[in-house]
Design a protein around this nucleic acid. Structure first.
Lengths: 246, 246
DNA sequence: TGATAAACGATCAAAAACGATCATAAGGTG
DNA sequence: CACCTTATGATCGTTTTTGATCGTTTATCA
């Protein structure tokens, strides 16, 4: 019954369009809570991306378009970013990835003196610009989907920076506590940054748990800090990582 | 719902160059404050630029936002760029600097197949994005004045590219035929690009002649092509350079 | 330059949607 | 058939989104 609905939901979503929970509820003759549960389950497998009011389909190997990602869960993302900002100190060199979560970190940065920011994200760069914060951007191939830079060029460039704090997010954390993502170029770059970073700070909202990203990046236990908005599942070993729940 | 609106706003903006908040509000059946919130969110990641009363897509050459303003003499610059575009061939790797003149080159690029563009200018990058042209951006320290990248990082990065055509402009050409500029970081980078470039194309409107830039870059006679909008002064030796007057 | 009108951001309250919980219904198994 | 598991729908408190209001800022034109 439920599997049957999953298939139908995927069909309805097949053309990549957005569908509301209410619409699905009527089309499939089940209540809205049921649709919500279905979508949540499908999200965990990585079949759909949810937002308030509905969902769109995503394929196994790519993340939702940037226009979709901006709006989703922004309240939670703002709180995660605020908590992460408490770690920063004057004179630090920090790296920020292209996730929409880290973007919210920027409004907290002006209170620090002599900060240097390294990023591969054009969105981050533009916001730093507004706040007049010194910025270094990794170059390389430009990705239209995420408005950011990847590739060999970016990777070799980051190796020349000494990074105090690396702030980043990701699409998924699987059941064994591995951070994973759908895009390998993005992952590859982050792996290089991890090597350069003194303190690694992973920002993780609860929608990430249980999902299966195609490419693993690192273990949660390799992090120095993990910022969460719900308790860490029992099954996952935090290792040396300091867990902060907001 | 909100995510769907983001997409529609981008569609609406891609047709026209400018849309008012009121117009968007009516087209999408939501209130004006909601549209403002949407535009603010989209602005933060760099998808649109806002002005009082509405928004424009940032990647619109014809009516650039204030922050990406293309200066005076744009008619002449457009003609120079059009002439320069005639040099390009399919499969070329071209470099474009951060000058406003080269910016006008972009609208001519979509007719070439398999083009790769290397640049240090964020404005160039944003416009390439609109035309879906593959782009590589040099990284490094971000200059707020010119919205582009300079410095050691950018310079060492450009050394890894093989460049077929280098298109660039400059602030001044002195009486002895030396190309010069006021900014040394910018000059320093261009010197590196000159070394990598097979064909060097200098775009020069007549306002540049007789000025004295503080830092010299190269001799006009070192160029492969010089695109002008007035005849070259008698006193300057063109050397091997092919002179084109438009 | 100063006055006027439009547009803006901030704030607040209402509405919509959400997740969590619980009781009930359906389905499977011994 | 009785029991257990799973799925479903209803309810409730919370979060998010939206629209209205108000004081402030910005553009325009005299």
């Amino acid at each position: 019954m439920r599997e049957e609905r999953f298939k139908k939901i995927l069909e309805i979503l097949s053309d990549g369009k957005y569908v509301s929970v209410e619409s699905l509820s009527k089309q499939l003759y089940v209540s809205m809570p049921t649709i919500r549960r279905d979508l949540t389950a499908m999200q965990e497998i990585g079949l759909v991306a949810r937002s308030h009011g509905g969902a769109i389909r995503i394929t196994e190997l790519d993340s939702p378009p940037i226009t979709f990602r901006i709006g989703v869960n922004s309240g939670e993302k703002i709180r995660l970013a605020a908590e992460a900002a408490k770690l920063i100190e004057d004179d630090a060199v920090i790296f920020m990835d292209e996730s929409t979560t880290t973007l919210h970190l920027i409004s907290h940065l002006p209170r620090f003196k002599n900060l240097k920011v390294v990023t591969n994200s054009m969105s981050v760069l533009q916001n730093l610009y507004r706040y007049k914060i010194q910025a270094y951007c990794l170059g390389g191939e430009f990705s239209r989907d995420s408005l950011s830079f990847f590739g060999r060029e970016a990777e070799s460039m980051v190796k020349r920076f000494g990074i105090d704090f690396m702030f980043f997010s990701s699409s998924a954390v699987n059941r064994k506590g591995w951070i994973a993502d759908y895009s390998e170029p993005s992952n590859s770059l982050r792996r290089c940054v991890l090597e350069q970073a003194d303190k690694k700070v992973f920002l993780c909202d609860k929608s990430k748990f249980g999902k299966h990203g195609a490419y693993t990046l690192a273990a949660l236990s390799d992090m120095d800090y993990v910022i969460l908005n719900s308790p860490l599942p029992e099954s996952i070993d935090p290792g040396k990582a300091v867990i902060r729940v907001v």
